[in-house]
Design a protein around this nucleic acid. Structure first.
Length: 466
RNA sequence: GGCGCGGUAGCCAAGUGGUAAGGCCGGGGACUGCAAAUCCUCUAUUCGCGGGUUCGAUUCCCGCCCGCGCCUCCA
């Protein structure tokens, strides 16, 4: 069992991480708000969280992976009302599509996937503890707020001094909500019912209402992982305020360290621009597929940059990654097939080392290519021992699993051509046999116009759908 | 104002106090009737700029220029 070295936002340094209980590495991932299709930016975070899990497991550790879906908030409530559906119906619909996309991207299912709707009692219980400890208070309008002045360590994750916080720095805040708080930086634990909430209200000791956003993650992570666990993660935008507030809620209530290690994934840009609804660049997995790429091309491209660095997502990068994946596929075709895979990375061990070193996926992918080329050169030069090849093929296979990358294989077989296309192809073969190049070229053009590419091979031809 | 990140070939992107991984694109070659695919091969005397430390710096230090992120509900 190798520990993984991972940058910890809390300490601003890379630290070794292994299960604190010596058994399973328990970690929590902040999932999406399910009010629409998840976009490539969301998936950068989810793919990196997935690679974290795969690498940790490849290093011989067991995991307990919890990823929530947020289904009680302004956007889901507004969306469900607009759609004329219950909040459950509405958010279950988008959760199902999330699962479809995750599967397409080879993202492993978390062991638990709790949602806020299903954990209202746990959240109420936690708020009650905070009330008892004087860390929360009820305002005149009935809502419950967290009293950050009472939590000494507030700001330790995002490294902001309370005095340095510029309140409402980017003018996004709805100031109408702000009057009832003792301090502008206090945040809502329980929101009292308002007209626009419709039927979405639960009874609590403080009246009908709904939980605030941050409390669900504190309640659910501690329910499934315990009051203290190994790692907590999400996109960088969650560092403040979401994760800072989770720490305040959880550590305030239990007096114990919440998550030991905080892992945050930098944001994705699209064609050099910030992603935003107004720019219309919140691309989805379906968009990528409609451009003619495979979801795995997207996955590869999300691993092509280091997770702590902003990554620029472009169609060019998808093209590059598709080619790179094909290249790996060509290598895979050289390896023996049908063998019982063995554990271990063999000559590909440096790939795992790079991944264990703060999830250096760009370096690891580079090594995957360069080692593959070395192996291929040895194979072609007849310098490799057949029994070595079993371990090497397994090592390659295991390395791909650690990335969650799939490579196209020659024997995968494409789409079957319809009869009309096959007829044209046969005619062209005949023309070629007769050395009638003009007719052969004409038929190739005709096939191309019909959407099929015909490639001549030594012993026949291959048809590929364009 | 506070905190933080980055500037490496046409593009993407690793990296180290001892002289630049890898991928894509592009060039050349093999193969092919021609293509495509594939294979082989080439492509940064140089790492934003200016100083300093050092036998030696892209890598450490200082200054500057440029770009970016966060500072209350966006992965």
């Amino acid at each position: 069992m190798h520990p993984i070295n991972l940058y910890n936002t809390l300490t601003r340094s890379a630290e070794n991480l292994s299960p604190m209980d010596g058994q399973r590495l328990r970690f929590y991932c902040c999932g999406p708000t399910v009010y629409g299709r998840a976009h490539v930016g969301n998936f950068r975070t989810f793919v990196m969280q997935d690679v974290f899990r795969r690498v940790v497991e490849a290093a011989g550790m067991e995991t307990l992976h919890v990823r929530n879906v947020t289904n009680v908030d302004d956007k889901t409530i507004r969306g469900s009302i607009a759609a004329g559906q219950s909040l459950e119906e509405f958010t279950e619909y988008w959760t199902r599509l999330l699962h479809v996309d995750c599967e397409a991207l080879s993202i492993l299912e978390p062991h638990e996937e709790p949602s806020a709707i299903a954990h209202v009692p746990e959240q109420i219980e936690l708020i009650g503890q905070l009330m008892e400890k004087g860390l929360a208070y009820q305002s005149d309008n009935g809502s419950i707020y967290y009293r950050i002045a009472a939590f000494e360590e507030y700001g330790k994750l995002c490294h902001l001094n309370k005095s340095d916080v510029r309140h409402n720095a980017d003018q996004r805040l709805n100031t109408a909500d702000e009057y009832d708080k003792e301090n502008a930086s206090d945040f809502a634990l329980w929101k009292t019912w308002r007209e626009e909430d419709g039927d979405n209200a639960w009874d609590s000791p403080w009246g009908r209402g709904r939980p605030g956003w941050h409390i669900e993650c504190s309640a659910m992570s501690m329910k499934y992982l315990g009051e203290s666990f190994d790692m907590h993660s999400g996109g960088v935008d969650l560092i403040f305020p979401h994760h800072e507030n989770e720490i305040a809620q959880s550590e305030g209530a239990t007096g114990k360290t919440f998550a030991r290690h905080w892992f945050h994934v930098a944001h994705l840009k699209v064609e050099g621009e910030k992603m935003s609804k107004s720019l219309g660049n919140l691309y989805t997995v379906d968009d990528i597929v409609s451009w003619g790429f495979e979801p795995n091309d997207l996955r590869y491209s999300l691993l092509a940059g280091h997770y702590r660095q902003p990554l620029n997502f472009t169609k060019d990068s998808l093209n590059a990654c598709r080619s790179a994946r094909r290249r790996l596929g060509q290598f895979a075709d050289l390896l023996p097939v049908g063998l019982e895979p063995t554990p271990g990375f063999s000559v590909f061990a440096p790939v795992l080392d790079a991944l264990l070193d703060d999830l250096n996926t760009p370096k690891a992918l580079g090594l995957l290519h360069s080692i593959s080329q070395d192996v291929a050169a040895d194979l072609k030069a007849g310098k490799s021992e057949p029994d070595e090849m079993v371990a090497i093929a397994s090592g390659f296979h295991n390395a791909l699993l650690a990335f969650g990358i799939e490579v196209p294989q020659a024997d995968a077989g494409g789409e079957e051509a319809p009869d009309g296309i096959k007829d044209l192809a046969e005619q062209r073969s005949a023309a070629r046999a007769a050395k009638d190049w003009t007719e052969a070229d004409r038929l190739r053009d005709e096939l191309s116009k019909a959407g099929w590419e015909m490639r001549d091979q030594a012993d026949g031809y291959e048809l590929t759908k364009l």
